[in-house]
Design a protein around this nucleic acid. Structure first.
Lengths: 131, 131
DNA sequence: TTAAAAATAGTAATTGTTACTGTTTTTATT
DNA sequence: AATAAAAACAGTAACAATTACTATTTTTAA
């Protein structure tokens, strides 16, 4: 299949590039509607999937039942707040060595690892106890 | 809330204890129906959630959009096959130190980590190329 | 300019899961 | 054993995220 240019897809990519909060498809939809008022949610899903498939963005499955998307495709760790559901980058060097270790003790083929940390984000920790 | 005994819940736990393949709620449902032919899918979901909440089983969110359940609650790594979707244990010592490292570089509270590896399992790797 | 391929908007369908409701089980107390 | 409140149940409906479908519009190479 030959990709054809699409202004909607550009817009989705642009939007994602401006965000560091790993938005969901729905958030992308709302955001892109600023410039494409009648873009379809299906178009957003289709393009997010396509962009992830060709490696231009990264799909994050962080266990909250909703897919998040990241413009930064370099391997890095994420944190997920169990309270508010926010997803943040972690400033911790990614241990690709773990994947290598895994390869050595497994008979199939390991392509990569997905690691996320969970807990309570700084904002929620602060708000949590109004006594 | 005081737990009351339930034969259905026992049966769900027993079933899970016999399995090492980290079945989904649906698979548990089918399995438990051998002994409880008219158990309700809702009962299965409710009890799996309850058992996971009280720490008697572990819920695995391995990014395939379906929850898997594990009778083994000790921290350990999992592998997920992108082809057939199977989930297997990895014989690789769990690196809890990574969670400690993450705590040190994050301002909120980190409770734990979830790591899974993905790729192609041994079975699928073999079947893949019939030339 | 044209025509095939790709993409689109809008809608319907699917899937995994949770919520609701009236009935049955469990269990502590008589 | 009888009773009654709490918990759990079966069965069904609702829900949310995502995917599939269809007729129309855009893109692009010839």
């Amino acid at each position: 299949m030959n990709l054809k240019h699409s202004r909607q897809r550009d817009s989705i990519k642009e939007f994602l590039a401006t965000r560091k909060d790993h938005p969901t498809a729905d958030v992308v939809y709302m955001g892109v509607r600023q410039s494409f008022p009648n873009i379809s949610l299906g178009t957003v899903y289709r393009n997010l999937t396509l962009l992830a498939d060709i490696g231009e963005i990264m799909r994050l499955r962080v266990g909250d039942g909703v897919d998040h998307f990241d413009y930064d495709t370099s391997p890095h760790y994420h944190f997920v707040c169990s309270q508010c559901g926010c997803v943040e980058d972690l400033k911790l060097p990614f241990n690709a060595g773990l994947t290598e270790e895994a390869k050595e003790c497994f008979s199939g083929e390991i392509e990569g690892q997905m690691t996320y940390f969970y807990g309570c984000c700084a904002d929620c920790t602060g708000e949590q106890m109004p006594v």
